[in-house]
Amino acid sequence: MTPGLPPPGPTGIGTSAATLAETSRPARAVAALYCPTAVRTHPALAQQVQHRLHQWADSLGLPPQAIAGHGQLAVLTHPDTDDPARLTTAAQLLAVGKLIEAAAPPPPNPPGPAPVLVQALDIALQEIYDACDTPHTARHPTPAPSPVTSDQPALRSALAALSALPASPYQLDRVRRAYQALAAATPTGSGPHPPWEHLSHAHINAYSPALTALDAIEGYELSPAAAAHPDLQRTQHLAALAAALLQDLAHPAPTGLTAAIARADRLGTPAATRRAAAIHDDTMHAFHHHATELAATADPATGRYLAALWTWLGGHHTFHTAP
């Protein structure tokens, strides 16, 4: 079995939700989720990467919050490299993804009908499991206008840094297309845009570009056939969805999943948190299942990529549980 993919743990929806019966505090909720933890910490390296990020953000006029903590996040999620340049590029790609997601207009106040959010997440999971496509594919076949496009300075700069690692033209194209898909999935215009639209389309895709770049960041390359394989795409999309759901639990917001479930089902915050945790765990179990099956027959590069997805999720988990 590929290193980094341990045997599957307990199965079933909501494995960790039972441990949340007495708390709704985000840190406790996230710590109890079915998810690995980081395999390395390196505060000095994280500080070095963060310093580089500040220089990059200043040169582009980006707000400090666009890169807050991203140096630490890059170090936690990429344990296979100690190269500050590679880690800085990884952090830049994460920052651009969040900038695109944040470009969506705010939802109306009060938010729109929450039940549609739960339905949209069900559809997203169904499409990932069965159709091997991201949820936006059928709805947005052509990238829509977005405040962050391939001509936007932050994305152009991040792609240039990726090219300098070096990354192949095919790797760059994969990452560029992931950003175009994210921009296409991000609601634009004057609205109103209910919160389910933002979460079910843009938010669950916000991590896809960074995960698409894993092989380039860590110095190897998936073959075009492997990268385009429906089973690998499904596995990657599940990892991206799990990361987005974990972030929602770590940073509850009125437009997030927990709040939407609370409104839809008239639940208190603790019960809604348990249900959101169950959705996350179901997604992680599905990811683990698909990744383990693929790893059994994978070529070396694909096996390394699957292991990197697992360790990336562990670093992301640790980042959101750190004090």
Results as ranks from 00 to 15, higher is better:
Asp133Val: 08
Pro106Tyr: 06
Ser163Thr: 15
Thr134Ala: 15
Ala103Pro: 02
Thr137Lys: 13
Gln126Val: 12
Tyr129Phe: 04
Gln152Tyr: 10
Lys98Val: 11
Thr134Lys: 01
Asp133Tyr: 01
Pro113Thr: 10
Val148Ser: 07
Ala85Asp: 15
Gln92Trp: 08
Ala144Asn: 07
Pro141Val: 00
Tyr129Asn: 13
Ala102Arg: 04
Ala95Ser: 13
Val116Ile: 11
Ser157Ala: 15
Tyr129Val: 14
Arg139Ile: 09
Cys132Val: 00
Thr142Glu: 14
Thr149Trp: 07
Lys98Arg: 15
Tyr129Cys: 12
Gln119Asp: 10
Ala120Asn: 04
Gly97Pro: 06
Pro106Leu: 02
Pro110Met: 04
Tyr129Thr: 14
Asn109Leu: 07
Ala138Phe: 13
Ile100Glu: 01
Pro143Gln: 04
Ala161Lys: 06
Pro169Val: 02
Asp80Leu: 14
Asp173Ile: 02
Gln152Ile: 00
Ser163Pro: 01
Ala102Gly: 08
Cys132Pro: 00
Ala95Pro: 09
Pro153Leu: 09
Pro111Phe: 03
Ser157Cys: 12
Ser168Gln: 09
Ala114His: 06
Ile100Ala: 04
Ser150Ala: 13
Pro153Phe: 00
Asp130Arg: 12
Thr142Gln: 14
Val148Gln: 04
Ala164Asn: 13
Ala124Thr: 04
Asp82Asn: 15
Ala144Val: 08
Ala164Arg: 13
His136Trp: 12
Ala138Cys: 06
Thr81Cys: 04
Asp80His: 14
Gln126Asn: 11
Asn109Ser: 12
Pro115Met: 06
Pro147Lys: 03
Asp130Met: 07
Leu94Thr: 09
Arg86Val: 03
Gln152Met: 03
Pro108Leu: 05
Pro143Cys: 03
Ala114Glu: 09
Ala102Lys: 01
Ser146Ala: 11
Pro106Ala: 11
Ala120His: 03
Gln126Glu: 14
Tyr170Arg: 13
Ser168Asn: 08
Tyr129Leu: 14
Ile128Glu: 05
His136Gln: 13
Gly112Leu: 02
Thr142Trp: 14
Ala114Gln: 03
Ser146Arg: 00
His136Arg: 13
Pro111Gly: 01
Ile123Lys: 06
Asn109Glu: 12
Ala131Glu: 15
Val118Met: 07
Leu121Glu: 00
Ile123Asn: 11
Arg86Thr: 04
Pro143Arg: 02
Pro145Lys: 05
Leu93Tyr: 12
Ala104Asp: 03
Pro143Asn: 05
Gln152Lys: 02
Pro106Thr: 04
Val116Asn: 02
Asn109Tyr: 06
Pro135His: 09
Ala160Trp: 11
Ala124Leu: 07
Tyr170Thr: 13
Pro135Trp: 04
Ala131Ile: 02
Asp173Val: 05
Gln119Val: 08
Gln119Lys: 09
Pro110Lys: 00
Arg174Lys: 10
Ala90Trp: 05
Tyr170Trp: 12
Leu172Trp: 03
Ser150Val: 13
Pro169Phe: 01
Pro115Glu: 08
Leu165Asp: 06
Ile100Gln: 01
Leu99Ser: 01
Arg139Ala: 15
